[in-house]
Design a protein around this nucleic acid. Structure first.
Length: 712
DNA sequence: CGGTTGCACTTTTTT
DNA sequence: AGTGCAACCG
């Protein structure tokens, strides 16, 4: 089977050189995924390599899934055309670094003392555990921000720095605090039978470094290793690669230093620049023909990125035409920006030139999405937000996941503290603290301790009864898991036994949505055979894993847009302080260059049309700011239109027609809130609006955050 | 002791 | 709006 069909000369070379180290420098839109997929297909079809001997690392789970499907269709075109699906037996190792590491740790982690039923802690769990550690250390009165600690710990982990090493090099008081908390946090986490995101990588490094037998096993197994987005690998991921590549050195990495946008989480694009030095004799392949964007878009993106100093030199080219010029829109404020974009989308769809799914709206911060949503909503334009508040971050979903996790890993203290009083069991902080203090002395896990909670001396009879009752429910659930009950059945059973639906149903419109969410959780769970598979998927699910659909406009951050493409792209908020973000101003030139790369990534997502907009004024943190147009626009040679004198204090415009903004409210207006139903405004104090609701409640809400709808 | 209420804060990007 | 935290009530 010839897998070179449909590839250009350079792309072909990427599969003809099937052995030894290969570095593919792939510019934006140069067909790298295609090249990578064809290379793998060629290895399987023509080089006698088995799928399971191939390790392919992608940046998102979605990319892995797509690659697996495309690969299967290359190898078995007929079967897939008949509507067949990829069989379970077809198992190349494909996934993100985190996903692959989980698999390795579940299989071999016990060799370095990791329980195979570890749970994965996300950022919320980590923050919770840091707060607990602060308390345990008696540091909670000091003005220490858990988020700052979390970032410091994560930074240390990504550089493979252990708590002990951190303590030894700590000099400033803050660092000394971090060192102490880091150690305490690690102990607590181990106690809980959990690993955090960074641990997944770190512990894999430790496993491969310390256990020669395990290392040799995988080195032999993986005859070919392929890594996508290599410019965004961090020190731990780099170490994993170094350990896994065997003496045959069949490693192929793909990347583009111009698109490195994750240095803030430890990614180091010099990994790609140093690849040739790490693997002497590397074949370097450059993919510089762009198949995605028009000439005009490519030129503009090139003008921006070439203002960076720290970069390799290359020139993307396309043989498709110039296309439409990049449009830069100056607007008065964020509301006008949202209106301009929404009406433009609506117009193009109405005349049949585009469908909603053709559009993507990209922004620097999730906070910018709110006004865009309002505007799209008001024009009845279907849209979809990727990232933002994830489905799995909703309270009711997190509650149920916490129950599942605790059943699966009965030492998981974060899940326990989340659900101990949900639904209400009259167990307050004091009782829980006393119980946990006692539990720590028993040597039993949390569930066993709960069942035996009546043996404690310090607790009130009421608390004891409640704890034992909870313990019995969890114990029964545990037995169900041992009997291999499916995750969806277990969730159903828990919802019934806990009377969780009743707890959630409080008569508000929002509570019905919560019930719906629980139902979709159950249907999600149906596709998984075991509780552990389901938990793993849920934990590693990223915001970028939601697929874009045909019928909806897609809204997302610039980071989430990496690797995607759309016929029309709108980039909003091109203002100094927004993009580039103000945080980089006092950080240094390299951070600013990363912002510029982010801009480049965003621009090169566009196939046919690229719009960029900036607002003269923007509401931020409840305050109106007046920002200069982004330097990235002047990079492109754009000269800002003069802002009319007096524009600043002008009332909402009439010149843009019926445009949308946070409406002006008056006393007496009727409004609808998703949370509280309908009501009437009785008082206004700046952004704070007092509303008398029909159910008798009087609430003071911030119009900026409360999702109020003005009636009539 | 547990629970409720009121107030301040929220925001950089994410596996 | 959601969250966390301090102050107060039964």
């Amino acid at each position: 089977m010839d897998m070179r069909e449909g590839l250009n000369a350079e792309q072909r070379r990427a599969l003809e050189v099937s052995r030894g180290p290969v570095l593919i420098l792939a510019g934006a839109g140069s067909g790298k995924t295609k090249t990578l997929t064809h290379r793998i297909a060629n290895l399987i079809a023509n080089e006698g390599i088995w799928p399971q001997e191939i390790l392919a690392v992608t940046f998102t789970n979605k990319a892995a899934r797509e690659m697996r499907e495309r690969l299967w269709s290359l190898l078995e075109p007929a079967k897939l055309a008949q509507g067949g699906t990829v069989p379970r037996s077809f198992m190349p190792w494909m996934g993100t670094f985190h996903g692959v590491c989980v698999r390795l740790l579940r299989l071999d982690g016990e060799k370095i003392g990791i329980r195979s039923n570890f749970v994965i802690y996300d950022e919320d769990d980590r923050l919770g555990l840091i707060k607990k550690s602060l308390k345990d250390l008696g540091l909670h009165n000091k003005q220490i921000k858990p988020r700052a600690i979390s970032a410091a710990i994560s930074g240390a982990k990504n550089q493979l720095i252990t708590p002990v090493e951190y303590r030894e090099t700590a000099t400033f008081p803050f660092q000394k605090d971090v060192a102490a908390i880091y150690e305490q946090y690690e102990t607590a986490k181990t106690q809980a039978g959990a690993l955090d995101f960074d641990d997944l990588l770190l512990e894999t490094v430790r496993l491969l470094r310390d256990d020669v037998t395990v290392r040799e096993k995988w080195r032999t197994q993986f005859k070919h290793i392929l890594i996508d987005e290599y410019q965004d690998t961090n020190a731990a991921q780099y170490a994993i690669v170094k350990y896994l590549v065997n003496d045959e050195r069949n490693i192929c990495v793909v990347g583009d230093d111009w698109q490195s946008i994750y240095s803030w989480r430890g990614a180091d694009y010099t990994n790609i620049l140093n690849f040739e030095r790490d693997f002497p004799g590397t074949t370097v392949i450059k993919l510089e023909q762009n198949y995605r964007s028009t000439g005009a878009i490519l030129d503009a993106a090139h003008q921006v990125i070439t203002k960076n100093v720290e970069r390799t030199d290359k020139k993307l080219w396309t043989d498709s035409g110039k296309g439409l010029p990049v449009e830069i829109h100056e607007v008065y404020d964020e509301a006008e920006e949202a209106y301009a974009l929404a009406s433009r989308i609506q117009a193009q769809v109405t005349i049949g030139a585009r469908k909603y799914g053709d559009f993507a709206v990209l922004y620097r911060m999730n906070a910018l999405s709110y006004i865009l949503e309002r505007s799209l909503l008001s024009m009845h334009i279907p849209y979809q937000i990727i990232g933002g508040v994830r489905f799995y971050d909703r309270a009711e979903i997190k509650d149920m996941i916490a129950y599942l996790r605790l059943v699966y890993q009965p030492a998981d203290i974060m899940s326990f503290t989340r659900i101990v009083n949900v639904p209400k069991r009259s167990l307050g902080a004091t009782s829980v603290e006393k119980f946990l203090a006692w539990q720590a002395t028993t040597g039993m896990d949390i569930i066993s301790s709960l069942v035996n909670a009546d043996q404690t001396s310090s607790l009130t009879p009421r608390a004891k009864t409640a704890l034992v009752r909870l313990g019995e429910i969890l114990r029964t659930a545990q037995i169900k898991v041992q009997d291999n009950v499916s995750p969806s059945e277990l969730i159903e059973w828990l919802l019934d036994t806990l009377q969780y639906r009743d707890y959630v149903l409080d008569g508000t419109p929002a509570s019905e949505e919560r019930i719906e969410n629980l139902d979709s959780l159950i249907s999600d769970a149906r596709t998984f055979a075991s509780v552990s598979d389901f938990l793993e998927e849920v934990s590693l699910m990223s915001s970028a894993d939601t697929a874009a659909t045909d019928e909806k406009v897609t809204l997302m951050t610039l980071h989430a847009a990496k690797g995607l493409e759309f016929p029309v792209v709108w980039m909003v908020g091109l203002e100094e302080g927004i993009f580039p973000h103000s945080r980089v101003f006092d950080a240094g030139p390299s951070e600013l260059e990363e912002e510029r790369r982010l801009c480049y990534v965003g621009m090169t997502r566009a196939r046919e049309e690229l719009h960029m907009s900036y607002a003269s004024s923007r509401l931020q943190h409840g305050q109106r700011d007046y920002n200069m147009p982004s330097r990235f626009l002047s990079d492109m040679g754009h000269k800002a239109a003069a802002i009319p004198l007096g524009a600043v204090n002008r009332a909402p415009r009439s010149d843009v027609g019926e445009y949308f903004s946070v409406p002006d409210y008056d006393i007496g207006d009727r409004v609808k809130s998703l949370q509280f139903g309908t009501g009437e405004i009785v008082d206004i104090d700046g952004l704070a609006v007092s509303i008398k609701f029909e159910n008798g409640q009087l609430k003071k809400l911030n119009v900026e955050y409360a999702h109020l709808e003005k009636l009539n």
